[in-house]
Design a binder for these strands. Structure first.
Lengths: 214, 214, 214, 214
DNA sequence: CATGAATGAGAATTCATTCAT
DNA sequence: AATGAATGAATTCTCATTCAT
């Protein structure tokens, strides 16, 4: 392991603290509230200083979004019990994705923003890298589905497409909640979503074991 | 029928042309590109003139969004054959929704933006009216599902929730295409979505009649 | 007497109604609220039409101010009983001036504005004509004072200067009231002013007859 | 005494120079000529920079007005010889007030503007603080009058009201001069005003000592 | 005569970015 | 490395004035 020089430590510290400030602002007041001024203030430094660590605002935002995205993936992955069966894994994944988005507003906001940004063809290149996180997440879902199909726990299907749909439904549900359009407890929304998915994946109602979809 | 005076005609023409300019900008470059200056230029008039037809930017945006939303609903509804069976209606609805969003970028962008706007609690009241279009659309889907359940074409289910999921999946699919993540023809994406939905709604693969989901 | 043609009648009617609207706005909300739009709306016509009767906004304002000023003078003069003694006339004049300014906010506002306008040397020429009303008013006061001096009711003094001071004090008093800095009834403020003036003019406390300074 | 850092010095310098620019514009062309653009140009900086020192235009104006008002009070107070008698103090006060207003056009303009602003009930709260300067000035005059009454140099009177009148007359006189309606030297106008006041305050012509009202 | 649509010249304010210290 | 003063371009909105109809 390489010892970090003082410079690197500082660099790291500043970078982190600026990114955290950015995320805090996004979570609290949305993207429009992110100004260099505010980020700096929140990080306890000055505007000019940010530019020592980020080329410009776009780069800062990109970095923040990447951090948020990767964190979400890490968090969701970490909640999947590798010893569970395929359906159990699907349940854990959906639930933990919902919970993560519920807990960290900036995560959901970011997912939506990323989509938004990618819809503008002129800007697409700039933000393309963010897609990788999405792809990684979709692959993870697909892997679970593939495993289920292999084990005959799930019916045969185009698992890539199904993974996409599952992700969409999870995000849609979280969004509905954020818009204040669902007053049910998160757990209930999660269970309804899983019940909706079950016949598609399993071809029948799965046997619910404790801890699966609560 | 009342003959319109020249004044009313002009008023109408301007209002329309400003709204169209707005929509064109939204479709081409997204919402952040909408400035009064640009809208005016696009409409071939001057900034000040816009204010003769819209109180301020918020009103302009709101009017544009409402127009887009109502247009989508009208267009989708118009494509549903009232004589078709429930599953046929679902197919028509999903397909025509996909097509509409594909054809009018501003429609999809608007749907996303509306969600975006509604995510900011401080602004929610301002844009709340836009939700009504969404609600109306969801009700329409629900009505079809209810009819299907009554006719035993569909299995019993929470039709309100199912309507929500169907809508989410349609939007998600359109969005994937807009992001350039699907290179399949629209028709194919539509069919895959319907095939995904079929087991849930019908409990089995439906018999596909010609013209239903192509 | 010349019969007025229809045109002249219309011209007169429009001019009056526009001026009245202007005054109403001044009285209600002050000068900053005077926009051509508002004046037109208040007069029941359109912006463009105003320009048929007034070259531009300055001319409109000037005309309105003149009307207001002349009206005040007429009103104040009308209240002076030509058979009263000099001190009685001073009392009537001061009181009726206070009352007029109290009743018509636009009058006082106008007096202040006129002063304001005349303080800007570049604009002075434009508004100079308004001074004539002031001068006429001062002359009237001076005439009363001169009469009093001739009749030995008042001590000898520079009546021109005294007239100026009396006018200043009346305006200052009205202004204090408008600023909400005096909660006494108007009559009381008037009497105090007169009591302040008495020793200067009369060299002693005058004998107050009924109806003089109330 | 604390040494100021370079930053504080600059901050102070800019604040001053912006305020001075504002005052210069007020003095030269009146309040309507005060635009952020013009102030900035006058101060040799850019619009945006002003906002580093003043939250917005209202704050800038308020600060300028306060500065002007307090400066006038300071200047007038400083000219009163505490060893002079009551009448002498009145003379000094009136004369130095006239001189100050004569020298600094913006002072007189400000006094008038303050009145103007306070006449609009909707804006009154915003500018109320400015009244305190006026009140302080009136109190000063009243104190002198009270002292004179106590010493039997002045006759008994409502000194609060008298203070108000004296102030009004001083302002009125200064204004007359600013409007170009008096061609006499300032000193002469001052003396006439004092002669007008004398019988009221003293009940007789005071003995003029050298240096009192010249 | 009268309209009222349209203009265009500002006005206030915000903010990403730069740069001398 | 860090500052934070300064910039300047952009943006929303207002209003007196003009002019074709």
């Amino acid at each position: 392991m390489t010892a970090l020089t003082g410079k690197q430590v500082l660099r790291d510290f500043r970078t982190r603290s600026v990114l955290e400030s950015t995320r805090r602002i996004i979570a609290a007041q949305g993207f429009d509230a992110v100004t260099m001024e505010r980020v700096a203030a929140e990080a306890g430094i000055t505007k000019g200083c940010i530019y020592l660590y980020f080329r410009n605002k776009d780069h800062l935002i990109l970095a923040a979004l990447e951090e948020i995205a990767s964190e979400m993936i890490r968090e969701v992955e970490g909640r999947i019990d590798s010893k569970a069966g395929p359906w159990g894994k699907v349940c854990q994944l959906v639930i933990s994705q919902l919970e993560t988005m519920e807990r960290h507003k900036d995560v959901l906001r970011t997912i939506l923003l990323i989509r938004w940004l990618l819809n503008d063809p002129r800007e697409r290149k700039k933000w393309r890298r963010l897609l990788e996180y999405r792809q990684r997440h979709l692959k993870r879902i697909k892997a679970i589905l593939d495993e289920g199909v292999r084990q005959k726990a799930f019916r045969r299907m185009d698992t890539g497409v199904a993974a996409f749909y599952i992700n969409e439904l999870a995000i849609g549900t979280a969004q509905k909640r954020m818009m204040g359009l669902s007053h049910a407890p998160l757990e209930r929304d999660g269970r309804m979503l899983l019940r909706f998915l079950a016949p598609i994946l399993c071809g029948r109602m799965p046997i619910w074991k404790s801890g699966e979809g609560k």
